[in-house]
Structure formats: C-alpha cells, structure tokens
Amino acid sequence: MPDISTREKIVSAAVKLFYSEGIRSVSVDAVAERAGVTKRTLYYHFESKDDLVAAYLEARDQPNLALFRRWFSDTEGGLAAKVQAIFHNLARSARHPKWKGCGFLRTSAELANMPGHPAMKIGAAHKKKFEDWLKSVFETEGIQDPMRLARQVVLLLDGSFAVVLLHRDPSYMETAGEAAASLIEGAPRTGGTVSPSPA
C-alpha cells in the first residue's frame, strides 16, 4: 500500500505542475519536490519523465470523460441541449483564473515533433473515447450518420479550446455549443426525419 500512495502522490504533483506550467518547463526535480519525495524515489516509480508525462494524462482521462457524461446526463431537455451543456460547463470552467485549456491538446502541441511519445497515444485515445461516446449517444437517438456528427462536435469542442485559450474569452466556447446544438437539431434521423427544435 505505501508504494501505491507514493505513486499517487507523485502523479498528483505532476498533474498540478504539468497542467499549470506545461511539460517542458517542469523538471523531474520540481515534481519530486512538490510530491515530497526524493528524485530517486520518483525514478523508482517512473523510469523517465516521459513515463511521468504519460501518467499525468492517464490520470486526467477517466475523470474528464466522466465529467462530460455527468454534465450531459444532469441537463434537462433534448439531445441538443444536453450536448450544448458540455460546452457551457466548460465555458464556466474557463472563467476560472487557473484554467489553462485542454491538458491533452496542450501536451500534444508540446510533443508535436514526437508522434510516437506515449503521452501522444494517450491523448489521441482520450479524444477518440469522447468521440466514440458521442457516436453511441447519437446512434441511440437515431441519427443517420452518428460518426460524422460526433466528429463535427469534437471539432467544435477542440477548436473552442484553442480559441478560448488564445483570446481568454469563454464566450467562444458558448458560441461553439450553440453551433453544435444547431447541427444536432438539423441532423437527419433514421426514417428521414429531422430532430425537432426545442419548444
């Protein structure tokens, strides 16, 4: 059990530092110091900084996906309103002074010249899980081309992450949510119908 708690302590420190300052600017020494462990102890649990960066994203994977699903399920109304709620909640998060954008996208930008890096694979898998979840939701709702619609929503979401980070204006994310809702409302359903607009 001590090994597990020590590893969790290191990952928790890495999550805070990497997200707030970026992976390039944070040293292994800084993570060890923040975690309250020696550098030797850190390397006992992680073979390299690359492994630690991968663990950072792994730690964010399921909690982020669970949060999106909760925002979706907790919202009253139809499919468009539920998806739009994800954007609105993210816009609210973006108004916090410590918000630094999407950790997965920021990490991929820092590792753009290292496509084989384990963190790149974790980031890509995370985005694909969200896309696949949307696709399954749209399938359940009878959308004719659920994959296409899921990808359109993902592009709006990730595009808004980038623009909000650039302009520091979360209203761009709310506008992207409105666009996503419009796409969903206008999406053909099996049987040739179109999703009814909310009253």
Rank of each mutant, 00 (worst) to 15 (best):
M1F: 11
P2A: 15
I4S: 14
R7G: 01
E8D: 13
E8L: 06
K9H: 07
I10V: 10
V11W: 01
S12V: 06
A13K: 00
A13G: 04
A14C: 04
V15Q: 04
V15Y: 01
K16Y: 10
L17G: 07
S25K: 14
S25H: 12
V26M: 08
V28P: 02
V31K: 04
V31N: 09
V31W: 05
V31I: 14
E33W: 01
A35T: 08
G36D: 03
K39P: 01
T41Q: 12
Y44N: 06
D50Y: 00
D50G: 08
D50S: 07
D51Q: 15
L52D: 01
V53H: 01
A54D: 09
A54P: 00
A59C: 05
Q62I: 07
P63S: 08
P63G: 14
P63A: 14
A66N: 12
F68T: 07
R69S: 07
R70E: 15
S73K: 04
G77K: 07
G77W: 03
L79M: 03
K82N: 04
A85D: 05
N89C: 08
L90M: 14
L90A: 10
L90P: 00
L90T: 10
S93T: 07
K98F: 02
W99E: 10
R106D: 10
T107A: 15
E110L: 11
M114V: 08
P118Q: 04
P118M: 09
A119C: 03
A119D: 05
M120P: 00
K121I: 04
K121D: 11
G123K: 00
K127E: 08
K128S: 11
W133M: 13
L134H: 13
F138V: 00
E141V: 00
Q144A: 15
D145K: 14
D145Q: 15
M147P: 09
R148T: 12
L149T: 07
Q152Y: 10
L156P: 00
G159D: 10
A162L: 12
V164D: 02
V164M: 13
L165I: 06
L166T: 11
D169V: 02
T175H: 11
G177D: 03
E178I: 07
I184P: 05
A187F: 02
T193Q: 13
V194N: 01
